[in-house]
């Protein structure tokens, strides 16, 4: 299967596109959608698929390489390493989103109970 379709980015936010790709790859590995030995799309392919600058994809891949999440194999491409390299659990990867949600809830004056209720309601709509 072509792994490119696993990625989706939104260039129109405050998070740089390369950062979105790095974060997303981490999540895909944590979840097991990207497994050890899987081949990531080539820089050109992914850039084409997402209509983004190929240099942005290279930048993300280089960073993933530095994080030991992928290995560059000459003539083949980027291979995904074992999930053990993540060093972070799914729960740890969720932390930033959680902090943001709680912070915004607090700013809006919502109580913990209200946030919990909203969370369950939203969860159910996505099931």
């Amino acid at each position: 299967m072509h792994k490119g379709i696993l990625f989706s980015i939104n260039p129109n936010t405050g998070t740089p596109v390369f950062k979105q790709l790095v974060d997303q790859t981490q999540r895909l590995i944590a979840r097991g959608q990207l497994k050890e030995g899987d081949l990531l799309p080539s820089t050109r392919e992914l850039a084409k698929l997402l209509t983004i600058n190929p240099m942005t994809v290279s930048k993300a891949y280089s960073q993933l390489e530095t994080m030991h999440l992928v290995t560059r194999k000459k003539g083949i491409g980027m291979l995904v390493n074992s999930a053990a390299e993540l060093g972070q659990t799914q729960q740890q990867l969720f932390q930033p989103a959680l902090i943001e949600t709680c912070l915004q809830g607090k700013q809006l004056g919502l109580s913990l109970q209200e946030i919990k209720a909203l969370l369950s309601k939203q969860w159910r709509t996505m099931e």
């Binding site: 260039p11 129109n12 596109v17 209509t51 983004i52 600058n53 240099m55 942005t56």
Partner: peptide, 10 residues
């Protein structure tokens, strides 16, 4: 169109 720039500009 800033969203175009965000897509392809370095």
């Amino acid at each position: 169109i800033t969203s175009d720039i965000e897509r392809i500009a370095s």
